[in-house]
Design a protein around this nucleic acid. Structure first.
Lengths: 217, 217
DNA sequence: ACCAACACCCTACTACGGTAGGGTTACGCC
DNA sequence: GGCGTAACCCTACCGTAGTAGGGTGTTGGT
């Protein structure tokens, strides 16, 4: 074919967008591959030029902008193949992308070889979504959690242990059993934790420490 | 200088590692820049060759492996400059990296130009950590949250509204005020939600839906 | 020897969360 | 019309969460 494929790669990490664009040029036979890192730039290029054969879209664009972007792309440029990419291995993310109109989805941590195969599949008109044991995974995938020590929060060792179980959603009674203490003692530790963290109840603590994980389980 | 700099780039996203390595070669005057995407490969290369001038380390390596990696690198190859990179703009992450021995830290979404400046600073022997208003930001940064609709969870519209406030940590009384309903009605909606999601209490719901965000605020 | 901090125990109380049972209105469907 | 469902209200009950107040023993610092 004389007409080589063109691509637009949008990711808020410019280095990754460049890396992918380079890969498309050097390994996938693309004649043009342009990396962009902002939504505005993305639409500006589309307005000014021919729609590309392929658009690679980061799923986690700031403010959840990727889903509406996919929807609008599908509506406005149905000929452009849409490949969504994401850093986390969550089946729900893949489903969301497909619902929004993506023709394919894969993880950023895939080997370049796999990436190339997915791109080829999309250009052929096929789709590319993982199925199998992976897709069964339910609501909750291991999220990345920043480790925090009890000391960093100004808590004693015991309070740290109690807090760790609180964050798992355990009620006082079960925490007491786990630590072989009376429920009352747990309540006092909880009161201490609330005071220290400036929370009114355990629920505020949980929402406040979302995404953190106490060191030592 | 006749001796050009060498680098080792570790990131579990091969395309990003390659992108960064290419950038070091083409824009930062590096004579060698090797991308790797697994810990094992990383140490294997270090064992077999001269320690590089620079190691670029993704903060969110699987299983939280990056912090121990930084610590051991600092101990074993103190001459190698360590640059940690991360996708999220959380001050706590930067602090953690510094504590673990990194000489610099920056976000993946930084412009390549900034990235180049940070690399240059590290090679000079300087450090590179952001300070300023950014660093003041406390415990919680906006996390990426996968949007979910009430319908997807099998909930009615009202239950969805109640659930959204539950996930913010609001008590029934305040939810009732916000919706101009009696507290009792809220309790019934909560009971319905618990039943539908198979949870025993609201805390289980919150931990179960960690990282999700109900659509429509 | 003394004091402060921590950890542990107790009783007693208030407030919030959640369930059960019973009742009203409004909407859409067969 | 009759039916189901969702939404709204009420009283009543029970279990958990959290506070207050008072007590014991241990540890580490001055």
């Amino acid at each position: 074919m004389t007409n080589s494929a063109s691509a637009l790669v949008i990711d808020d990490h410019p280095l990754l967008a460049s890396g992918i664009a380079d890969f498309l040029l050097s390994h996938c036979g693309f004649g043009q591959a342009r990396p962009v890192s902002s939504i505005a730039e993305f639409w500006a290029i589309l307005d000014a030029a021919q729609p590309p054969s392929l658009a690679v879209v980061d799923f986690w664009l700031p403010e959840g902008a990727s889903l509406p972007l996919l929807v609008q792309m599908k509506r406005q440029y149905p000929a452009t193949r849409l490949l969504a990419i994401s850093a986390d291995d969550n089946a729900a993310v893949s489903d969301k992308a497909r619902e929004a109109g993506a023709d394919g989805f894969l993880h950023k941590q895939e080997a370049p070889e796999i990436f190339g195969r997915a791109v080829a599949a999309l250009l052929r008109g096929d789709t590319w979504f993982r199925t199998g044991p992976f897709a069964v995974a339910g609501i909750n995938q291991p999220l990345k959690e920043l480790p925090v020590t009890a000391a960093e929060l100004g808590l004693t060792a015991r309070q740290g242990q109690v807090l760790a179980m609180m964050l798992k959603g355990l009620p006082n009674k079960r925490i007491a059993l786990n630590l072989s203490l009376s429920e009352q003692t747990i309540k006092e530790h909880v009161t201490g934790i609330l005071e220290r963290l400036g929370a009114r109840n355990r629920i505020e603590v949980i929402t406040m420490l979302r995404g953190k994980k106490l060191e030592g389980s």
